[in-house]
Design a protein around this nucleic acid. Structure first.
Lengths: 334, 334
DNA sequence: CTGAAAGCGCTTACAG
DNA sequence: CTGAAAGCGCTTACAG
């Protein structure tokens, strides 16, 4: 039970309104008065009562913009679910969601411009890492949360996974499957995407290939390319394990299926293709990043900021990597 | 925004006090009046405002008893942490904790008797599965939450893990490590403990031994017995993998260490021994059950019941099994 | 069996 | 720059 505003007001010989003004830096308070109030708050270690605060502020409404590159990318479904579920818990947040397809800089710039005109009080975005995007975001005067992908920008917080560790964990699984080493083919979307490269590096740090080799390939996150690529690889090289470290898993698995290959596979995330691979026994494990939690955490952070004016403890909010095996119950981590 | 008590009172032509009496079945309300109020509540789908409720009730204090067989069993540390952390979040709950050593029925009966005299409003217990305990618990007139171990008793809820699934997941790992099958030794504490047997059964369902065999042993959850047992097993049998499905992991690993054996191991939980095994590379994986969450969830359930008179959605509250690998960041799931 | 009033700890206009 | 009052949606005595 911390001291209350009422008590502080008495001690400082001012009204509760004035204390409130000081606490929230609403301005228009005489410097001396302000100092006096602050001193008392400090002395008695004032902590606002969130419940009382919530009771009166819960009728305020906030608009939060969301820009997310989710069209045609099943992975983002869970993130969106997390966003929507969490916002309805507070019932004072309206979401204005702009879904984009692919990673076109101009599309995203346009989306930012448009969404800002909708009178939003905060922005959640899966940003593309370019100068123009960084500049556009830095110009905003509302809090920004980067989600799933981080860039160097002024922000309230980042919510996403540790890609390097995801790669390490795949390396652990590979070590279990191939205790004597072997040849591994890693397939990612693009060597230009930070997350993809980090997964490769994490894997390489951990997996002991011994006399084998680790080879890396790009499939542009595209199932058709992935399909052709895998057929090509299997035809030309002796591969002991595939690590699909990004999208295009359905295509890759289909190729192996058709080749009647029994090369084991490690995948990422929990898309339909990744689940099927696990359940039919071809995939050893899939490393997931709790996307639902990324969405819900982003909303939490913004809610805390808008309603209680509180920043998250850490700017970096990392969702844990989780190993899914064949008999894992698929339960969403809320 | 649901209808408020004030509004209901107006519509029913009664005072807010009377509405409150009806809502909480406090009694002393004329039958007709009560029906009238209930009808209106139903018609307008009244949902109490938790925030307002919390503001006024947050000064009430509750005592919650905890009986837990934690002495000398490191596994329970996390459960206790979860209990303590969660209760301090609400700051209206006092915990009265009785820690016991081992699974002696009379000790637990005595603890129940004693703790009830402390004027507690709810009880959390890791119960032993005997008739006398069941009777003693059924006689209580306060809500009971069984934690970590479930028994057939009147209760508000059970919080714990799915042991069978834990065994299945170990089977998945074993299948990755031994794709051609092999001989597996499973060591548990006792064939009389439900959880231990379920883990064995889950493993057996999933692991394809092929020409190998699965053999099971008891170590009484004791490190010394475990140590001798493992030495004995390795001396007499060709074993391709050990699955330590309960306590006594430190003893078992020490034996393998001394034998300079390189037989791989799967363990359970996140004790010091389990972590060390993972980090030094002998253990392939340890299957954990989120004990911290078991503790915190138990408190949540009781808090919701005592403060808001709300029962949990499900009586069975299962914490997910989680695979920890060598490079897993050890992060507590709160 | 029932009502009127006070209060939980805040914030929000309004008035000066 | 500051204060007095009302109100958020509940619960809690108290009085009858």
């Amino acid at each position: 039970m911390s001291i209350t505003i009422k008590k502080i007001a008495e001690l400082a010989n001012v009204s509760r309104g004035t204390v409130d003004r000081v606490i929230h830096n609403r301005g228009g308070v005489n410097e001396e008065t302000s100092e006096r109030v602050k001193a008392i708050m400090k002395k008695y270690n004032y902590k606002s009562n969130r419940i009382a605060q919530a009771l009166v502020t819960s009728k305020k409404r906030y608009s939060v913009g969301v820009i997310i590159n989710s069209i045609g990318n099943e992975f983002f479904d869970s993130i969106l679910e997390g966003l929507v579920y969490e916002k309805q818990k507070y019932n004072n947040i309206d979401l204005i969601i702009k879904e984009l397809k692919g990673y076109d800089e101009n599309d995203q710039l346009k989306a930012i411009e448009e969404i800002v005109n909708e009178d939003i009080q905060a922005l959640i975005i899966t940003p593309i890492n370019t100068e123009n995007i960084i500049n556009a975001l830095n110009k905003l005067d509302i809090p920004v949360v980067t989600m799933n992908n981080d860039i160097e920008v002024d922000k309230l917080a980042f919510v996403g996974c540790d890609y390097y560790n995801s790669g390490q964990l795949s390396g652990d699984i590979a070590n279990i499957a191939l205790p004597n080493g072997g040849n591994v083919a890693i397939v990612v979307g693009s060597f230009n995407l930070r997350g993809h490269v980090e997964r490769i590096n994490g894997f390489k740090e951990v997996f002991k290939a011994q006399n084998g080799k680790i080879k890396t390939f790009e499939n542009q996150d595209d199932d058709n390319i992935s399909y052709d690529l895998v057929k090509e690889i299997v035809k030309n090289k002796k591969i002991d394990l595939f690590y699909f470290a990004a999208a295009g898993i359905a295509g890759g698995l289909k190729a192996l299926e058709e080749l009647k290959s029994n090369i084991p596979v490690i995948t990422v995330d929990e898309t339909k293709a990744a689940r099927e691979g696990l359940l039919n026994g071809r995939t050893l494990a899939t490393i997931t990043q709790q996307p639902y939690k990324q969405g819900s955490r982003a909303i939490q952070i913004i809610q805390n900021y808008l309603v209680y004016n509180t920043k998250p403890e850490n700017k970096e909010n990392i969702t844990g990597n989780k190993i899914q095996l064949r008999h894992m119950r698929f339960v969403v981590d809320k």
